[in-house]
Amino acid sequence: MSVSSELLVAGFNDAVHDGQQVFRALLTAMSEPGKLQQPNLIAEGPGALNANSWQVALALLDADTPVWLSERLAADAAISSNLRFHCQSPQVDSPQHAAFALCDASDVPDITLLNMGSAEQPDRSTTLIVQVPAISNEPHWTLTGPGIATERQLRIGGLSSTFVEQLIASRQRFPMGIDCIFCSADTLVAVPRSTQIDINMGGR
């Protein structure tokens, strides 16, 4: 697949420092699961990709990170062109071979098809970046685990119950597993594999 130059959008204004700021926000998000971050260093993303997912991609992806795109995102020429141009990431057909998987909440992959790493090298797993309509700390999921003093509440919009069930089930394979980064238009939050998710039955 080639790059359509008319579809290219701007990357970071200052690749080094902007990239570092987004990375810093991701580091906080990963080490304090459920804590909302708003780095917002970029105005718009390519095609159907929101600005937040785009800046995460710019900060994390490069020529050494194979990326898998969900069907809908892969069909969007603006997204694949810009990922190729700005990140140089090779796009792979199977999520099993991807360092990063990029998808929309409406189009999530079967989690069991992602690479969960191996017992010897759990770090070789796929990191899943999900674009979602809304993120808040309203009660819905109760998160516990490393990086959370007692518990933290998190509500992520647009996720199917199958996806959530698979995500919770994947906890049994720790230290293997999938680390997730959820990106709404202006907020990002991380739920790494070490975080336990309890769905509040009392909540809506």
Partner: peptide, 8 residues
């Protein structure tokens, strides 16, 4: 012009 990729 608009910078799509500032000199890097």
């Amino acid at each position: 012009y608009q910078l799509i990729r500032p000199p890097e």
